[in-house]
């Protein structure tokens, strides 16, 4: 394995006010090279007006095999959804 090169995740903002969207990854030895490589690779045709690069190693994720247990608390609290509540007939705008 070659030393020093890092993988960076690339996020592009299409227009001011829109969210940054993940588009893929690129390589770079340092921040500046990473963002220049990301520009050359992902915005050659005006695809964005702003770019983020984040070291792939810095991203924290839930391991696939733990996802069910991890998200379980969100599943059983049906009272968090508006459909859980009964509204009397004839009452509107709720």
């Amino acid at each position: 394995m070659e030393s020093g090169v890092k993988v960076w995740e690339v996020f592009v903002q299409k227009k001011s006010g829109l969210p940054f969207k993940h588009v893929g990854s690129c390589h770079g030895y340092d921040k500046k090279m990473a963002i220049q490589n990301a520009r050359d690779l992902y915005t050659r045709r005006g695809e964005g007006r702003e770019l983020w690069v984040v070291e792939s190693n810095a991203i924290v994720s839930v391991p696939l095999d733990e996802a069910d247990a991890f998200f379980d608390p969100g599943e059983d609290k049906i009272y968090r959804h508006a459909t859980f509540y009964k509204i009397p007939e004839g009452v509107n705008h709720l």
Binding site: E2, S3, G4, V5, Y29, D30, M33
Partner: peptide, 13 residues
């Protein structure tokens, strides 16, 4: 080029 980039990155960091 790769060696120089790695050395530079280390120095900057």
């Amino acid at each position: 080029v790769r060696e120089a980039a790695a050395a530079y990155a280390e120095k900057v960091e």
